[in-house]
Design a protein around this nucleic acid. Structure first.
Length: 267
DNA sequence: TAAGTATGTTAAG
DNA sequence: TTAACCTACTTAC
């Protein structure tokens, strides 16, 4: 269930659990045997995240790059790990903790030039302090492509996925089909600041919640539906105006929006 | 039990 | 534009 907040949260957890420790690495599934062997016995210096990409930097060792894709995920614990079962791509064991990686799109070793090249094709990440949102706006302001597609393009902004795309556009009353070049600079800066806040909340809690307190139950534990304004709410009434939420495919993914709250037009 | 769906990306056509 | 990757959860029967 990975958008950028998930990856940043993992980087923090794994830093806490493993940094400074000599790790044992294995690939019970067999698809990453050579890579695991090159990690095995090395000390993990640090982990970090950029957009949806996770990196492990090993002392006098390689850089591990993981991208979870749509299906990938980590499970973890302490003490004795469970007997490996099924397609277990990578198992890491530290002094007390262990973590298992399954189903990633990418699990590979990079050298520093390859890491530089990968980062060079990512736009600013709202979860990183070194992000430069002005550079993203310069590119958006030149593009005839819809803002709903641009937000999904990691070259423009890194770390946003299908939930944050739909929800941030709703929160700012922006029609997803409006061209990037028709998005005002004020809209962009407001949306960026909102993404920073929403995604930081996601890192802190491990969940995406975009519905403001006045539009949701007071309960602390929300259902998925209660957490969102439009995502996966096709046909249900908009929380603001009761218009049925619409869905369409944009940038190869299901897009959700309220046609009344997000009308066509400049802004 | 099977079918459908998914918070993602790349490469082939 | 489409298929492929590949796991887990939800829904239908």
């Amino acid at each position: 269930m990975p958008e950028g907040h998930t990856i940043h949260r993992l980087a923090r957890e794994q830093n806490r659990a493993f940094a400074g420790q000599r790790l044992r690495a294995s690939s019970p599934q067999g698809r990453f045997v050579d890579g695991a062997a090159r990690i095995d016995g090395h000390v993990l210096r640090s982990t970090d995240a950029y957009g949806k990409h996770l990196f492990h930097r090993y002392v006098d060792g390689p850089i591990l790059h993981v991208h979870l894709g749509l299906f990938g995920g980590f499970s973890s614990g302490s003490g004795e790990p469970p007997e490996p079962r099924g397609a277990l791509r990578l198992r890491l064991r530290g002094e007390t903790a262990w973590t298992d990686l399954r189903g990633p799109t990418a699990c590979e070793l990079l050298d520093p030039p390859e890491l530089t090249a990968l980062m060079a094709r990512l736009g600013p990440d709202p979860l990183r302090r070194d992000a430069d949102p002005a550079s993203a706006y310069r590119r958006i302001a030149r593009s005839p492509t819809s803002i709903g597609a641009l937000l999904m393009d990691q070259k423009f902004v890194a770390g946003i996925g299908n939930v944050y795309r739909a929800e941030v556009l709703f929160r700012h009353h922006i029609d997803p089909f409006r061209a990037g070049r028709d998005l005002s600079e004020a809209n962009w800066w407001a949306m960026w600041a909102d993404l920073v806040a929403l995604m930081r909340f996601g890192v802190r809690t491990g969940r995406i919640v975009t519905v403001r307190p006045e539009h949701r139950p007071r309960r602390r534990l929300l259902t998925r539906d209660e957490s969102f304004y439009v995502y996966r709410r096709t046909g249900q009434p908009c929380r603001i105006c009761a218009t049925p939420i619409r869905a369409a495919v944009l940038a190869a993914r299901n897009l959700f929006w309220c046609p009344n709250c997000q009308p066509p037009g400049a802004g």
